[in-house]
Design a protein around this nucleic acid. Structure first.
Lengths: 199, 199
DNA sequence: AATGTCAATTGACACGATGTCAAGAAACAT
DNA sequence: ATGTTTCTTGACATCGTGTCAATTGACATT
């Protein structure tokens, strides 16, 4: 009991820092986030952040883990697994994942950027993306089973294509660079996926 | 004649700087490239670099242009401009650009990896990608003029889609992560572009 | 040979960001 | 009341970009 309270108290400021970082990551899409910004948002001094995290990288990765705990992709994609037909499942999967991307985008950016210099970050990111690929694979397999898959692509190729179509990079390019509304993104990507994959 | 020699002499150091930057970008093993590194490689002082380029952004952008010149991207894409029909031009553009990507991948990787932490690198990269977008735009405009463009997409949307389909990230994902051969990449991307865009 | 021009050098400095350190204050459990 | 932990404050080292002024060296012009 004592230990529990102590660790809870101990984590209070740490949590405030993580939440502050999270909020800044989500709000701030262009500007760089400085340690001083995070500290101010958390209501502590810049130096105090270093009492909880070794450095900036450590903090950013800890934040991604924190968000991982708070938001799960699993719940989001449950709907797609419920769909009966292949095409229905394709649509539901694109909608579920496509609408999840903006929620993790702030974090995704950090992980993608860190991948060159940080093996752990790269692995965490690859892990997540492989889970998405498995979702794509399940959709493609169902389509193939139903004979709905375009015959010029093998099922592996089709999985690769869908996975690539649904990459976070593509979402960034279309919504951030090209200025597409989120709704348009989901609709047009769904349309493209059907045109490419469904026979 | 005098002017020619003068401008040639004038550009000598500038060229050395560009070549040095290029070599560092290609050789780079994850380390960030500083102005001092470029200067040393070019055999001049750090400050002297600023006599030829306004700032780091300017230098990086100039380097990508220099590489484009030496690698002959213009010549490669000339073939696409020569094609008479819209579809022919689409195919030629994808072939020209798609086969150019692997040649600039060394530089591209560094610029893309640096984009989060390095505003200058991001700007240099964005500048080049906008040039590709213009190529996509020309192709789409021709298709639309011929009435070959699928009617569910506006020409701007179609340009965005083609541009995204041809992104370096997609090339990396398909050829590096999914293990596609370069030839398969070009063929399958061409196929996808036709399915999505041609009515 | 003297002159002027231009490129480059040298050393110094401002600026902004990360990260460290030491001394003291404040919170808080016992 | 006391002692421990957390946080604050102010100072400082470090690193990279970009700027500036004074100076050197090469070279073309006259």
């Amino acid at each position: 009991m004592l230990l529990y309270i102590m660790s809870s108290e101990k984590n209070k400021t740490r949590s405030r820092i993580l939440v502050a970082t999270w909020e800044l990551l989500e709000a701030n899409e262009g500007n760089e986030i400085r340690m001083i910004d995070i500290a101010r948002k958390a209501g502590i001094s810049r130096q105090a952040v270093y009492l909880h995290f070794e450095n900036r990288t450590d903090l950013l990765i800890a934040t991604t883990r924190y968000i991982d705990d708070k938001k799960g992709i699993d719940g989001r994609l449950a709907k797609s697994r419920a769909a009966k037909s292949g095409v229905g499942r394709l649509d539901a999967f694109i909608e579920g994942w496509g609408n999840y991307i903006p929620e993790i985008y702030g974090v995704a950016r950090v992980l993608m950027a860190a991948r060159e210099s940080d093996i752990d970050a790269a692995k965490a990111w690859d892990d997540r993306m492989l889970a998405v690929r498995e979702g794509c694979e399940a959709v493609i397999n169902l389509l193939e089973k139903e004979g709905q898959l375009k015959s010029t692509f093998s099922s592996t190729q089709a999985t690769d294509i869908l996975w690539t179509l649904l990459s976070v990079h593509n979402w960034v390019q279309l919504t951030q660079n090209c200025g597409w509304a989120q709704e348009d993104y989901v609709n047009k990507i769904t349309e493209q996926a059907r045109l490419i994959l469904i026979q």
